[in-house]
């Protein structure tokens, strides 16, 4: 017993101050990518050629990058001879609409839910997590939110064991055909009104598995998605920011 108390003192207080203080991210962190259209000139297409998931695409004469497909590998940044593509340290990536995940078209960061939903869930949100073909990385970075470091409970958000106890589901993975029915049933088991949050490139678009006959290419073909949180996997701070922003707990 004595050694347990000593260990408690030793291990100290570890909960981060976020969101009151800015998060501490590694120096080499790859956050929101930006495209400088002036520098790009939209001529060479080198970045399109190296992008593993086809996230970079020319639309209306502008180079655009779909955050929903991006795996944040940084190959485009390395490839661009003009330095037009840059991965910034911006960790806020969540969005309410699939279309607004496209960088180079319009602004992103529109994760806020409507007033009624915020009123319902703003102070208490219970989520059932469904992994549907996820590799375990998105799952791990959701799981870590429940540790003392992030202490998700202090925001009134909690992962629960049963869909019957949940206000919504948080989906990871490209949704394999073999999980399609299970995801649908879990969604149906959540009482109305309910939310769906898609976390990670796979759940948004299929990510590296986009176009595979064995997957559904993300959650939105199976269940209606309310919030998208991009990344491969998203940093835990990005997920937390997305959840808090959706609930209106972080205001810009």
């Amino acid at each position: 017993m004595f050694s347990i108390i000593m260990a408690r003192l030793r291990q100290g207080h570890r909960t981060i101050r976020y969101p009151r203080r800015p998060p501490v991210l590694p120096d080499r962190f790859r956050g929101l990518p930006v495209i400088d259209q002036g520098l790009c000139g939209n001529a060479c297409g080198g970045c399109e050629g190296v992008c593993p998931t086809g996230a970079l695409m020319r639309r209306d004469g502008r180079m655009t990058l779909d955050l929903g497909l991006c795996v944040f590998c940084g190959e485009c940044e390395k490839r661009c001879p003009k330095g037009a593509v840059k991965f910034t340290r911006e960790h806020r990536l969540a969005s309410r609409g699939r279309e607004s995940l496209v960088v180079g078209q319009e602004a992103v960061l529109r994760a806020r839910l409507d007033e009624t939903t915020r009123k319902l869930f703003g102070r208490s949100l219970k989520l059932r997590q469904v992994c549907a073909g996820g590799c375990g990385a998105c799952e791990a970075d959701c799981n870590v939110l429940t540790t003392v470091v992030f202490d998700l409970g202090r925001f009134g958000i909690q992962f629960v064991a049963s869909p019957r106890h949940a206000d919504g589901i948080l989906v990871t993975g490209p949704v394999t055909k073999n999980m399609e029915l299970a995801l649908k049933k879990t969604y149906d088991a959540v009482p109305d009104p309910k939310l769906v949050i898609a976390v990670g490139a796979c759940a948004i678009s299929g990510g590296p598995y986009t176009g595979h006959a064995e997957t559904c290419g993300g959650a939105s073909g199976v269940v209606p998605v309310d919030v998208y949180i991009p990344g491969c996997p998203p940093h835990p701070i990005t997920i937390l920011d997305g959840l808090l922003r959706a609930l209106g707990r972080i205001k810009e």
Binding site: G134, T176, H212, A213
Partner: peptide
């Protein structure tokens, strides 16, 4: 088998 994404095929 629920996680099968067809990796070896591609």
């Amino acid at each position: 088998g629920y996680q099968h994404r067809g990796v070896e095929r591609v």
